[in-house]
Amino acid sequence: MIDILFYVFAASVLISAFVMVISPNAVNCAMAMIVSFVGTAALFVLLEAYFLAILQVLVYAGAVMVLFLFIIMLLDVDKSEKSYLKDKMTLGASIIGFGLIVVLVCSAFLGGNHLPEPSLLPVMENPTGEGVGIPFTTSTKSFGYSLFTKYMLPFQVAGFLLLAAMIGVIVVSKKNEPEQG
């Protein structure tokens, strides 16, 4: 049962990702992207990582919503419906990406050197009220606790980067003109 579901969701993720890349219509791209994200969330559910699955839907599907609005409001959809395969940047990027996939598939099937697998160590410090260290599981508590202890610095740095990006967007997009209406 789980195997069949895995193949169904994996196929839908791959197909919709492919459609997203090749579709000339921007709205189709955004919809395919949503399907791809939701399919990835379903794969997380099959791994029993419910928290990650829901975050995938909540964060990424919500982000696509904003993208969607940008497409609808800012891009002129009718004029962008033309072949862009002649674009040299696109062509170069596709070739590099395809080459990377070939390398990945070859190394996966032929074996050989790969990166050392990090072992999932339990977070050792005890939270107040808990008797033992929380093992690394897929539960919400485990995520929260490791974020606020072991991975506190990366967490703060990521938050700070996002803040900088947000301020940057506001500064760039806000024009120095008197407000209208």
Binding site: Y50, F51, I54, L55, V57, L58, A61, M65, S139, T140
Partner: peptide, 21 residues
């Protein structure tokens, strides 16, 4: 009865806006 019921509701119901858009 999943552990993250509330997040599930927030996440899924946020998809409803796609229908309107």
């Amino acid at each position: 009865n999943i552990e993250i019921g509330m997040l599930f509701i927030l996440g899924i119901s946020s998809l409803g806006v796609y229908g309107i858009v």
